[in-house]
Design a protein around this nucleic acid. Structure first.
Lengths: 260, 260
DNA sequence: TCTGAATGAGAGCAGTGCTCTCCTACTTGG
DNA sequence: CCAAGTAGGAGAGCACTGCTCTCATTCAGA
């Protein structure tokens, strides 16, 4: 459980707590409140119509102000979208984190399933916000640095699940040499895994990344309607696939080092 | 190889040949030519700027005509986008089909890998067109009936690979009862699999659908930049994951009914 | 109390999708 | 071979968009 706290701790500090500062003066508070109202209204339009139909003027109109006033808070439409993207990443990341905390690290397969279910649940409940972050990147929009930390929260939770499993002896080691994996994984991740309090073998990182992408592939097909007229019982398909992904990563039930 | 021909045949007839009619009169030909030029120009703008920045007026301007003239060919921007979507589905489907034909049905694992590689290759070469069909659905845009046949071509190829493997005795049967799978898969797919010349056990359909979604999840993460600063050697990761997916589907090397 | 910054209002610009009317050119029926 | 009908293009115009600029107001701190 140490890994849990450390991973989640770093995620929380880097992505969440620092963004909401201490209580400020009345003026700054009013400003933050208006900015929040703008974001809320924008989020409503996003949920109703999708990102491309999100209109600054409509948001301003709904809020009873004129469109130019909105530019005092967000310098452009892209910046407003970025704020919504960060919020969405934080929301789905928080769903994953709290699911992990709730499931506990005792049974890795149970934790893995809980996290995956939470992510899928959030995606199905917020399809347009999900599309905003995991669909096609917005045109001419390069993800600014503010989004990378929140964007990695779900992946860090999956990493924490694997590390907890490894510490409990419920993670099958990969058979391929670690040197092969080092060239696959990027420098940033290697540094993360080499930190002194990390215990996860670097060799599982590629499998984890693949499972991460595959998980979101499954969710995206469901959210984006690719399973229409193909798969009816998506719950069952998801559950079975999540178990397969856990096995692919190397997760086993606690106690039995090598299951079926 | 019978399965190959029959599957690909139905795909070709339904999706491709019917759309390009016989040689017509000069007038209709001129009309088709202009429509083609519009689509080409639109595709160029799509590749350069993305779907959301595709502008009818800009297309018309580039073609030296006025925007209203363009409405003689496409009744709305959405219809032009739909035409591009159909073309993109056909292109990626054709890439998959020809990869399958080239690989042959002798070695199922080889065929599976070839098809997956071809799909990934097309996606990386045409990221914006890929985003158009596998990214977030365009806002307020419900896929018209014209797109469902082309959209299913890649999936049909994967189905054909599995059926060829089954006929060669290189497909591991699922352990769960077929009744369970029947409720997962939609009516349309069940009817497809129950056709007299189909030999694929219905029980592998769910595994195939899951692998299908996971494959595109992996590709989407790569195309949409989710692997930036996470995975460097994406080729290796893809190859390894494709093998894992093949195993998940139940594909084995020819001759050995159940290998590791 | 005065100054300067923050905030909002309004006009305006260039661009968009789309519709309407008008005019030309061409195909086709007699 | 000619008249009629139609397909296609041109242009104006409408409502909307993101964004910028200027001008007035308000309000906090020196």
């Amino acid at each position: 459980m140490r890994a849990v706290l450390s991973y989640l701790g770093s995620a929380l500090v880097s992505g969440r707590l620092l963004s909401m500062g201490v209580i400020q003066g009345a003026k700054e508070r009013a400003r933050a409140e208006v900015a929040g109202a703008i974001k809320d209204q924008a989020r409503m339009q996003l949920a109703a119509e999708g990102a491309a139909r999100l209109s600054l003027r409509a948001v301003a109109r709904e809020l009873g102000m004129v469109s130019s006033a909105l530019y005092r808070y967000f310098p452009s439409r892209d910046d407003l979208l970025t704020a919504l993207i960060v919020d969405a990443y934080d929301a789905i990341g928080e769903a994953a984190e709290s699911a992990f905390v709730k499931a506990g690290a005792a049974d890795p397969l149970h934790a893995w399933g809980g996290v995956c279910r939470a992510v899928r649940g959030w995606a199905l409940a917020h399809p347009h916000e999900y599309a905003l972050i995991y669909g096609s990147p917005v045109p001419g929009y390069a993800a600014p640095q503010d989004t990378v930390a929140p964007a990695s929260r779900v992946a860090l939770v999956l990493l924490a699940v694997a590390e907890a499993a490894h510490e409990a002896g419920a993670l099958t080691e990969p058979d391929l040499p670690a040197a092969d994996c080092d060239s696959v994984v990027a420098e940033e991740i290697r540094q993360l895994l080499e930190q002194p309090d990390r215990t996860l073998p670097a060799a599982v990182a590629p499998r984890l990344a693949a499972a991460w992408a595959q998980l979101f592939g499954l969710i995206s097909f469901e959210v984006f309607g690719q399973f229409n007229q193909v798969i009816d019982d998506r719950d069952t398909l998801f559950e079975k696939t999540v178990v397969a992904l856990a096995h692919q990563v190397g997760l086993r039930s606690t106690g039995s080092g090598a299951g079926t």
